[in-house]
């Protein structure tokens, strides 16, 4: 069931997920009338609106229209504000977390190499932001060697997080703490719970679908939504994912299509990364519980002998 409407206020709105970076998209502010119609659509469909901002300043007229409905704002975090912690967004997106300080959740888009070299910065950020969402921008390039490095990094970070929990703090790092809290899948939702309205007045499965191919729309404001094979965006129609308990997995629909050509099928790399996170979360949960009662209502995360559920398909096919 649809719940969220992402409105890209500009063609150069910030990339906050696996969406390719702005690059040479060219600017293009959403016309004010399109924005009004988009908001109206969201209200009529009872959708929570998330505005994605470009770096540039928007006029007062836009600000007024934007404020006409309850919403959340996703913005990029300028370097100048890194240390100041000045807030005018509900989610900040950044390409660097060095010395970061914020009072709202931060999305950090990074490639693997930068991630592997950033253990200290992540540990520091966890004390200075309420939540850190790490988004890897090169998932499809991971090799076995990278998986090992990722595993080691998660293990190291889990030790820091355990220490913070013992100190009475509750840091949130999507890669490690989400799975401890979840009892069912909590993934991307593109095409199922979330759709995107682009500046051209057309709907897309997610921003990445718009940036990749503008003709790949799923309806427009004039004629409404037309999501073909809508069921394939749902978990029940994803043969690998519906058997999986890496509940924190991003399950990026766009990456699925890019790597396997099907929106309902994740790549090997995405599955392995999600399971390394899951297993590290398991260790973290078990270790925190050694210090006392922790999330008593939450079931143990089971030990498993695989990293890619695809390899276990014989057990559920």
């Amino acid at each position: 069931m649809l719940q969220y409407l992402i409105i890209l206020l500009d063609k150069e709105s910030v990339s906050f997920c696996s969406t390719p970076p702005k690059g040479e998209r060219g600017g293009g502010l959403m016309p004010l009338e399109t924005l009004r119609q988009g908001i109206r659509f969201g209200m009529m469909e009872n959708l929570m609106i998330q505005y994605v901002y470009p770096d540039k300043e928007l006029s007062k007229e836009y600000a007024e229209v934007i404020e006409s409905i309850d919403h959340s704002k996703i913005k990029s975090l300028p370097q100048s504000l890194l240390k100041e912690g000045r807030m005018d967004a509900d989610v900040w997106v950044t390409e660097s977390i060095k010395d970061i300080k914020a009072e709202v959740p931060v999305v950090w888009r990074t490639d693997k190499q930068n991630l592997f070299n950033s253990e200290a910065d992540i540990v520091c950020a966890l004390e200075n932001v309420p939540r850190l969402n790490v988004v890897l921008t090169d998932v499809e390039t991971f090799t076995d060697e990278d998986f090992e490095k990722y595993k080691q990094l998660l293990s190291a970070l889990a030790k820091h997080i355990e220490k913070l929990y013992v100190e009475g703090k509750a840091p949130q790092l999507n890669l490690l703490t989400d799975r401890m809290m979840l009892q069912k899948m909590n993934n991307c939702g593109a095409g199922d719970t979330t759709i995107t309205l682009a500046p051209n007045g057309k709907f897309y499965v997610c921003p990445a679908f718009f940036y990749e191919d503008e003709s790949d729309s799923i309806g427009d404001l004039e004629n409404g939504l037309d999501i073909k094979n809508k069921q394939l965006y749902k978990l029940e129609y994803a043969p690998i994912c519906r058997h999986c308990d890496a509940y924190q997995c991003k399950r990026c629909i766009w990456l699925n299509r890019k790597t396997t050509l099907e929106v309902n099928t994740p790549s090997h790399e995405q599955c392995v990364l999600a399971h390394l996170e899951r297993n590290a979360s398991r260790e973290l949960l078990n270790n925190i519980r050694k210090h006392g009662t922790f999330l008593p209502e939450q079931e143990d995360i089971k030990e498993i002998d695989y990293l890619d559920p695809f390899d276990k398909r014989d057990t559920w096919q």
Binding site: P239, T260, L261, E262, T265, S267, F310, R313, Q317
Partner: peptide, 26 residues
């Protein structure tokens, strides 16, 4: 066309995953 690799680069196993997990109901 759905090309899953070639004789030079081998099989792109990610592109085979949807075929090998297909079932009747889905």
């Amino acid at each position: 066309p759905i090309i899953i690799g070639n004789i030079y680069d081998g099989i792109d196993k990610n592109k085979l995953r949807p075929f090998l997990t297909l079932d009747r109901i889905t």
